[in-house]
């Protein structure tokens, strides 16, 4: 299928066309870029929800439960789940589907796993593009699950409208040491695994942290869920709806959209610049020469980096 056929298929709700389109966008093929160009004008209708939190807090279980709740509310759901790629082999085991088994037979749900492919920030570089495809395909809700690790995975906030931060009662120490940044990206806070002891303590810790965070016009609710038993998702869905309404009504709505657009452009451009620059420097032998010089201590790494960037810049201004 070529790009026009895929675009028509995606817009008509053809699941196979959507699946193949995602493959193209993920691989950043020529067709993939044509798909994004053709489909982007048809995005912006879906409610996009990011779900982040440390490894094992129950993000996938939570996403599945949230999807079921959204289905009960009559909405269709697209899901993108990112798992880490191995830094050694570039391979990955994508296991998030295990927790979403019962959704597989539901025609109103489409779930896609992605590997992070070396991208830092908790997402795959093309994850926002895949969210856009699902949006254009007409799903009412698109949920994006990030890689679960550490506290630097804040990129999700630039990819979705409402970000949900998932923690657990066992994460008490972690909550106390949580960086302000992670708190500030989340508009809904969830203490999952509320069936185990300490959930109320965790809620209090989160509340205390929020109290010292900076001034804001949206007050993130702190909610308890037991995702494994489908409990608490009603309140979470209500909170997400309230935040969406706030976003639309906010006087800052336009400003927020522009900020989101800017961070998406910058994130993608950063990757492109890096890959193109390195490809050029390798092909021209510039990188190899600089490596020789630095390894022999004729040149320091900082000066070598300068030389590399200068060479790239000269080349790019010539090819204009």
């Amino acid at each position: 299928m070529d790009a026009p056929e895929l675009i028509a298929g995606v817009r008509a709700g053809d699941r196979r066309a959507l699946a193949r389109s995602i493959t193209h966008v993920e691989a950043d093929t020529v067709i993939g870029r044509a798909l994004l160009a053709g489909l982007y004008p048809h995005t912006g209708r879906a409610t996009t929800i990011g779900v982040t939190g440390s490894a094992g807090v129950g993000k996938s279980t939570f996403v599945a439960a949230l999807a079921r709740e959204q289905r009960r509310r009559g909405r269709t759901v697209g899901i993108v789940a990112v798992d880490p790629s191995s830094p050694f082999s570039n391979g990955a085991i994508l296991g998030d589907r295990i927790r979403m088994q019962d959704l597989t037979g539901d025609g109103g749900v489409f779930m896609r796993s992605m590997a992070s492919r070396g991208n830092l920030g908790g997402l795959s570089e093309m994850a926002t593009g895949v969210v856009d495809l699902m949006d254009a395909a007409g799903f009412d809700i698109v949920i994006l699950e990030t890689v679960g690790a550490g506290q630097d995975e804040v990129e999700v906030a630039t990819a979705t409208g409402t970000t949900v931060l998932v923690t657990t009662p066992a994460g008490g120490d972690e909550i106390q040491s949580m960086k302000a940044g992670l708190m500030e990206i989340a508009q809904v806070m969830v203490v999952n695994k509320a069936d185990i002891a300490g959930a109320d303590t965790a809620v209090m810790q989160l509340r205390a942290l929020l109290a010292i965070a900076s001034e804001r016009t949206w007050e993130p609710p702190i909610l308890k869920t037991t995702a494994r038993e489908d409990k608490g998702l009603d309140e979470v869905s209500d909170a997400i709806d309230r935040h969406q309404a706030y976003l639309k009504g906010s006087e800052h709505a336009e400003q927020e959209r522009r900020a989101l657009a800017q961070s998406q452009i910058v994130a993608l451009a950063r990757g492109l610049v890096q890959r193109r620059a390195l490809a050029f420097a390798r092909a021209e032998g510039i990188l190899g020469q600089l490596v020789d010089d630095v390894a022999a201590r004729r040149l320091d790494p900082r000066a070598a980096a300068d030389a590399l960037v200068d060479a790239v810049q000269r080349n790019w201004s010539r090819s204009e």
Partner: peptide, 22 residues
């Protein structure tokens, strides 16, 4: 990149996962 779906998969689940994951 390996999508592992766990045990007890019906033929429908396997085919649907293969389609969605391309």
């Amino acid at each position: 990149e390996v999508i592992y779906t766990g045990i007890r998969q019906t033929p429908q689940m396997i085919a649907e996962a293969a389609l969605q994951e391309d």
